[in-house]
Design a protein around this nucleic acid. Sequence first.
DNA 1: TTATAAAATATTGTCGACAATTTAACTTAA
DNA 2: TTAAGTTAAATTGTCGACAATATTTTATAA
Lengths: 215, 215
Amino acid sequence: MTDSIKEPLKDKIIEHIYNAIVNEEFKGGDQIKELHLANSLNVSRAPIREALSELVSLGILEQKTRKGVFVKEITSKDIFDTYESKGILEGFLALEFILRASKEDFKKLYEYVDEMSIETSDRKKIVKIGELFHKTTLKYSKNRTLLDFLEKINKKSQILFYKNWAKLYSKEEVKQRHLKIIKALESQSKTLIESTIREHYFETGTKIVLLREVK
Amino acid sequence: MTDSIKEPLKDKIIEHIYNAIVNEEFKGGDQIKELHLANSLNVSRAPIREALSELVSLGILEQKTRKGVFVKEITSKDIFDTYESKGILEGFLALEFILRASKEDFKKLYEYVDEMSIETSDRKKIVKIGELFHKTTLKYSKNRTLLDFLEKINKKSQILFYKNWAKLYSKEEVKQRHLKIIKALESQSKTLIESTIREHYFETGTKIVLLREVK
DNA sequence: TTATAAAATATTGTCGACAATTTAACTTAA
DNA sequence: TTAAGTTAAATTGTCGACAATATTTTATAA
């Protein structure tokens, strides 16, 4: 692990565990043993424990008292629930957008949608633009409680479901899906906005689950 | 602190801090110093740190790197947001109820409402019954992500806003407010259910904030 | 051989100490 | 007296060791 000054060890350890999970060095059900990690990273158990408990609170790991910390098994239900939750939260939070959005905000949304579908965009870039799109729809939201929670969910799903994002939708589909959200926002109808955004994520959750079941 | 075997120290410490906050021995903005707590509870800093970081993740305390852990200042906005969030979550989660609820479930809801308004019930009991009421409306909800989050919010608001619950509503008002929710559930209309439950909490949040501003 | 009990090992929980950093107290200069 | 700089104290971050518990291995008996 590279060490720079100032940043607490805990945070670097968290990063390390993230990567280990993404790279499937740690798999669902695996126990993460403090001393092993400590030795392999050349640190003591103290910052390891801090990192672990933070990841437990994020819902990525699971603590069993006096047994240890384990990588959570991800069920299809978990995935579905996660996307459903994103839909509920973003659907509501985006309502602030219609109260405050400027012409420029909408213009930006259309720009993002265009970028999603241009030939040269690779998957990774499209994901990135998607994030910007959704962040824009939330830019006027002020409910810290819900925003923080949404952030946690996003972090978690980024880590756990990253692999699935690969070929869920074609470029054209991505474009259409997001255009639909813009149309809903333009309609100014609260119920339409909420249901559209919910549907947006519901569809993705369902798709990922299906993909998994097949495999 | 009373010590019994088996339970990790961390949990007892958390309990202790809860109480200290409720009893206003710790006030918003106060720094909680590890060594002080450790000494006064006759334990080492290790379990103290674990307890603190858990309360940080609950959102009750706030960590500033290398500065310390502080009791969060609660603003009116926080209170409002918390109740708004409860409304959003419960409003959605309760939708499962109408798909699966039996006659007995509804009967139970009516019973709770009755208990709320009988002469002998004191404030504390009414709060307790209120919890049972809401728990019942969620009994068929299965989205772990949202349920866990709601639980966190409830825990937090119990600790932080407990004092406010005293005289927000008269017994009759409490009854009417919950009857309204039952009626919404009976209507089977999803939009009505969600908006009613949202309104239910929105009203409470607004009231608490008003009460605060006056004082 | 298999099942059970005992011993040995591994792992988490807790502790006290030191290091790094921040905060408070003190000094000195204007 | 006040402001800035310096020193001392307090506080968090990290460490290695021991205690308590859980797991694995070994030994024993049927």
